[in-house]
Design a protein around this nucleic acid. Structure first.
Lengths: 217, 217
DNA sequence: GATTGTGAAGAGCTTCACAGCT
DNA sequence: AGCTGTGAAGCTCTTCACAATC
């Protein structure tokens, strides 16, 4: 009975980080890990780690730390990764292709069950074992396979229409790679991945650290 | 004299969003925009928009809003986008190729001046007008062109070594696509883009909204 | 009437520090 | 001695609400 609802966004983000570390620790056959070490490997203060982990209700052992396997299991459960998730991809351009071939998705329990595009040249091609289908097949496919997740990697001007179409088809969550903010019903989960945003944040960070040392210009 | 330093991380992130909106508004020849509209298009409360924009020292006009062109200019300045930035790419796999071909980067003032890989098969190929070079050419290239930004799109086990190598070569900021947290000197800016994290956050969000309505399972 | 800029209140997140367990 | 779990303090970010401006 871990209350999944009372987890803040910052906490859930760190949970993903912890999970990444635990994966590595399991491969090294480490039996336990302390909040201090988990923190060191994720750039989080140890007290914060313990607070985050407290929602499992005392899984740690004073003097020892957390049992790697148990914690891994609990984290996956909290994040909803204890079962696998099917997903469709819309837009098989450069980014779309990279996503289809991204090996980590399958490792973590994500599964592409369909890939769709408008371009007749790419339709029919197989990428990472999946045959690209025309957009016209999308609606049926969603209803049939009862997919809940979609990844959008289409040009920005198409993204809004595609998103609306997906929602109408029954999709509940969208990972959006188009550099556009989607405005959808608020029971639809949206996560944006915007490369330009990321680069701008990087530039801003650099300027912050170089301003201290008196502008290198 | 806008004090670039006193801008919080959440604010700077929203600045990127505002900038995206302003780009669109400029294309539509809109002369001014209100905090309310800027907020609506980015999912931010109007008061928050005004607070964020306040660091420019009164650029808005009561009863009217903000002059689109001026605001655009100021935002770019604050974010450090008033000049263009050169960058190198390390790792020309699926993701690397997508990044090289990503058109928005150039639009926003980012410029690839080098792309590097270990794989002899890709070395020498041209992608988006850029010839892939061997890793052995990386150090010289950085020093020569005085690049400050690097994008890492290598497998996770190589990322740490590559990052250290880049820093030793004089790189000041890294946009990291490998699903690994880099621990570097703290005057080095790092921004992580982790697809698996993003998908996990999405799943978590979905569960949050479906838990309310009593698990669809 | 519409909209800005902002002090003050409110909400949320992080860090501290220490009792308590092994 | 080493480490967890947590109340309380401290800090940051967001929202409210309204006087001031056009």
């Amino acid at each position: 009975m871990p209350n999944t609802e009372r987890i803040s966004k910052p906490t859930s983000q760190r949970m993903s980080l912890y999970l990444r570390v635990l994966n590595a620790q399991l491969e090294l056959d480490r039996v336990s890990i302390s909040s201090k070490e988990l923190g060191a490997q994720t750039g989080v203060k140890d007290a914060q780690v313990r607070k985050d982990l407290a929602c499992f209700g005392s899984l740690g052992t004073p003097g020892v730390g957390y049992l790697t396997r148990d914690l891994h299991h609990q984290l996956r459960r909290i994040l909803g990764m204890d079962k696998s998730w099917n997903a469709v991809l819309v837009g098989v351009g450069n980014i779309g292709r990279a996503l289809l071939a991204y090996p980590k998705f399958r490792n973590e329990g994500f599964n592409f069950v369909g890939a769709f595009d408008l371009d007749k040249k790419t339709i029919g091609n197989k990428i990472a074992g999946l045959q690209i289908q025309p957009m016209t097949a999308l609606a049926n496919s969603i209803r049939h396979s009862r997919v809940k997740l979609a990844l959008i990697a289409v040009p920005p001007n198409a993204a809004v229409a595609v998103a609306q179409f997906l929602v109408d088809g029954g999709i509940r969550g969208i990972l959006n790679f188009a550099p556009i903010r989607l405005h959808l019903r608020d029971d639809i989960a949206v996560v944006n991945v915007d490369f330009t945003d990321a680069l701008e944040q990087l530039v801003f960070k650099i300027r912050l650290s170089t301003t201290d040392v008196k502008g290198t210009k």
